[in-house]
Design a protein around this nucleic acid. Structure first.
Length: 127
DNA sequence: CTTTTGACAGCGT
DNA sequence: CACGCTGCCAAAA
């Protein structure tokens, strides 16, 4: 079972529309919890259950093994690229007001459920 | 309790 | 553009 943060990170990642991306750091910042590395850890553990190619490093690249395979997805979705890497300025997802509401709710839920001993009934209020 | 380890980020050289 | 370093946060050893 994954941590609350991991679930929240994956849920948020799943909200990123095709053709857009968010950086690992963006996820952490939007959730106002953890850090880029925690987001990376969450995705690493997810094993394909989310559109992982929409979460990239701040410079628009992905670590060696993933970068190449991500290219086909980016091309298929029409993600703005620039010299083989994602053009962050153009591709970065700009959440709408409705999205922010959902994200804030998610972050708030995370804040209240996280940090307590892993009890039998820890549940993330889904979107 | 301390150390190591990551799908990271930013800055200096 | 490429390294190299430091800062970062949490989980695992």
């Amino acid at each position: 079972m994954s941590t609350e943060f991991a679930q929240a990170a994956l849920l948020l990642a799943a909200r990123v529309p095709p053709g857009n991306v968010l950086s690992y750091g963006d996820i952490a910042e939007l959730l106002d919890a953890g850090g880029p590395r925690q987001v990376g850890a969450a995705l690493a553990h997810s094993a394909g259950t989310v559109p992982w190619w929409r979460i990239v490093r701040a410079d628009g690249t992905l670590p060696p093994p993933l970068h190449e395979s991500a290219l086909s997805h980016w091309q298929a979705e029409g993600t703005p690229l620039h010299r083989g890497r994602v053009s962050m300025a153009a591709a970065r997802w700009q959440p709408l007001d409705a999205d922010f509401a959902a994200i804030d709710a998610l972050a708030a839920a995370l804040r209240t459920t996280a940090r307590r001993a892993p009890g039998p009934n820890r549940r993330m209020p889904l979107l």
